[in-house]
């Protein structure tokens, strides 16, 4: 399980990184950040990039800060940094709930938030978080920088709308309002395994009823997504067991085809119910 040969590049600036990527992208060049997804794929020779652009030493890529109501996450911010202290208010609480479910400690010290998005694994907690909160993803190339909504970025199983020569230079997560409640539930076979199912919810209770709900589901389909029907089922209702149940059923109703529909339905319902209950 030794990787196939490649050429290695270690840019120090974002301009340099983008320039190298532009040159090597047509030759199946890939970006190396935390490497916790790409390097195993290379060891199994499922991935055989001819060039690797290692962005770990690009100045400023490890920046993590809050600006204009958004948490800005540089491409080399490790999972471990995204704990409760990473953002104020409910968003920090939410990150603190989600992050411990990502693989294991030594993976979290290396793997990156942006890398998770770029790899677009269906069972990635950060991809779920990104779609749930409408993250914006900034991609930079020689043609300039564009900002892509998470839902348009994550196209399917391990597929994104990133062009081969585009470097993911930042992800931005909106802060949540102070009255936002947050909940996350994940079921995996073993500690640290990819999720069989996971759900992330946030909503506020204003005037005794649910406002601004976001309900996202991951692990069952080829990509995580917000469940509009579930959100519609709960908005404006008193946040009680009955309302939660309607939301969970609506989420399950909206599932696309899966290998074992009965079990998938159960998992979807359960995850949404439990995430809602955790947020209550």
């Amino acid at each position: 399980m030794k990787p196939a040969a490649f050429e290695y590049h270690m840019p120090r600036t974002v301009e340099e990184a983008v320039a190298i990527l532009a040159r090597v992208a047509p030759l199946d060049g890939r970006v190396l950040a935390g490497g916790q997804t790409l390097v195993p794929a290379m060891a199994l020779r499922l991935a055989r990039p001819s060039h690797l652009v290692d962005i770990n030493r690009v100045a400023g890529f490890d920046r993590l800060d809050v600006r204009d109501g958004m948490l800005e996450i540089g491409p080399c911010v490790r999972h471990a940094a995204l704990d409760r202290s990473a953002a104020p208010g409910p968003l920090g609480r939410l990150l603190g709930l989600v992050q411990p479910h990502i693989a294991h400690h030594p993976i979290r010290t290396r793997g990156t938030f942006c890398g998770s998005l770029a790899n677009a694994d269906a069972a990635s907690e950060w991809c779920l978080t990104a779609v749930a909160l409408d993250a914006r993803i900034e991609a930079r190339s020689g043609r300039g920088t564009r900002s892509i909504p998470a839902d348009a970025f994550l196209l399917g199983y391990m597929t994104t709308s990133l062009e081969p020569d585009e470097l993911l230079v930042r992800a931005r997560l909106p802060l949540l309002p102070d009255d936002a409640r947050v909940g996350f539930y994940e079921y995996a076979r073993r500690a640290g395994d990819f999720a069989q199912v996971m759900a992330l919810v946030t909503y506020a209770v204003r005037g005794g009823v649910v406002a601004a709900p976001r309900i996202a589901l991951g692990g069952l389909e080829s990509r995580p997504r917000r469940m509009a029907g579930a959100e519609a089922a709960i908005v404006g209702r008193v946040p009680d067991a009955l309302a939660f149940r309607s939301a969970a059923d609506a989420a399950a109703d909206a599932l696309g085809p899966t290998e074992d529909p009965d079990y998938a339905r159960t998992l979807a319902t359960t995850a949404v119910l439990r995430a809602l209950a955790a947020a209550a």
Binding site: M1, Y8, M10, G35, Q36, V39, P40, A43, L44, L52, D54, N56, H104, H105, P106, I107, T109, R110
Partner: peptide, 27 residues
Amino acid sequence: CEHGVCGACTILLDGEPVRSCLMFAVQ
């Protein structure tokens, strides 16, 4: 395992535990 699951290759990189099978020596 050489794919980052078993942890037998765990070392400290600047004090942090990492899987040394998931890094290249150049890094």
